[in-house]
């Protein structure tokens, strides 16, 4: 997994590539923590994400909770596999997704 960061004032875009699984999820979590404050408007570009596991869901859930008050989190262009995972786990109702 690789993460590219694009920061403009309060708007932080993280371009994620590859697999977000047990091994790589901690890296994504670290990268989010490094680049985001409580009022950050975070965009996670998932266009190049192959798949995610429950470890990634855990990261997404905790980030959503953290940014909910003052900032926001948007997931952009997840593929079918990732969408299906969001669907079966009920995350579609929790996350803001743009396709």
């Amino acid at each position: 997994m690789e993460v590219k960061v694009d920061q403009k004032d309060n708007l932080v875009t993280l371009i994620v590539e590859g697999r977000v699984d047990t091994t790589t999820a901690p890296d994504l979590e670290k990268s989010i923590q490094d680049n985001c404050k409580e009022d950050t408007n975070l965009v996670l570009d998932f266009t190049a994400v192959e798949y995610i596991s429950s470890a990634a869901l855990r990261v997404l859930l905790s980030t959503t909770k953290r940014l909910k008050e003052k900032g926001s989190m948007v997931i952009k262009n997840p593929n079918d596999v990732v969408m299906e995972i969001f669907e079966v786990t009920g995350f579609l109702d929790i996350l803001t997704i743009e396709r």
Partner: peptide
């Protein structure tokens, strides 16, 4: 429970 809100969800 997949119907809970983000605050109520545990991982």
């Amino acid at each position: 429970d997949t119907t809970l809100s983000a605050e109520e969800r545990s991982v």
